[in-house]
Design a protein around this nucleic acid. Structure first.
Lengths: 123, 123
DNA sequence: CTTGCCAGATTACGCGCGTAACTTCAGATT
DNA sequence: AATCTGAAGTTACGCGCGTAATCTGGCAAG
């Protein structure tokens, strides 16, 4: 629900990439990648079930898991929290910060301009 | 050093607002605001000392604390971590996310345009 | 019917955090 | 010199997390 831990979010990412997944598929997707034992993956899945972040159930012939919260919702709460804590909730200072630290790529700049243009248009 | 916890960051914020501060002043600044007992504030200060995030020492007549890391450095590591985790390190998608969720204020928009213009200028 | 597999539940353990009290040690005051 | 004061260190405790193994119970296959 509220707090998806870092390790747990890896499981969520796998399910957001492809849904639904079986226990085995989840392990295949994240186990090796993170160096986790199958038991560890199981624990994380169990905790996510308890948190109502995912659901598990039999569908047809096999038992599979599905995310109950969307990635967008998760991203929203995570990024909003950071924004509030670090930049008083204002987006521009955040971008300014990245600009100062040379973390604004040319690609970012181009996309930002396009984004702003789009917003201006249907304003 | 690396990991300044949430509670600890409140202490840091106080020291970044005004430096140096005595133990008493730190408590005055953050204790009431967060509902912390003096002992709790002391623990947090101690942990920050151990982490080399602040320094403490006698200056003139009283004992005071100073931050050893800058707010900018902290903001950088925090925001970069979030950016990498949530948006593959790209700033534009982050802004796009906020735009979609109607979290982009008119003020933000104006500042962003100004910011981009400034960057373009001395490119 | 019995055995085995698989999902879920229980248990484990060390670490950091939030919250806090108590102890120690050195400098200052009496 | 003895006492006090304030800073640092030590100890405490429950919780969530990262990491993992084991137990249990139901369905499927032999």
């Amino acid at each position: 629900m509220q707090t998806i831990s870092d390790a747990e979010s890896r499981i969520m990412e796998a399910l957001w990439r492809k849904t639904p997944l079986s226990a085995e598929q989840i392990f295949a997707a994240v186990g090796a990648e993170n160096g986790w034992a199958p038991a560890t993956v199981k624990t994380l899945v169990t905790r996510l079930l308890k948190k109502k972040a995912i659901s598990g159930g039999k569908e047809g012939d096999s038992y599979v898991y599905r995310p109950l919260i969307t990635r967008a919702a998760w991203v929203q709460s995570e990024s909003q929290g950071m924004l509030d804590k670090l930049f008083k909730g204002e987006v521009a200072p955040l971008v300014a910060h990245f600009a100062e630290h040379r973390k604004l790529s040319a690609k970012d700049l181009k996309q930002l301009k396009a984004l702003i243009a789009r917003i201006e248009e249907d304003k």
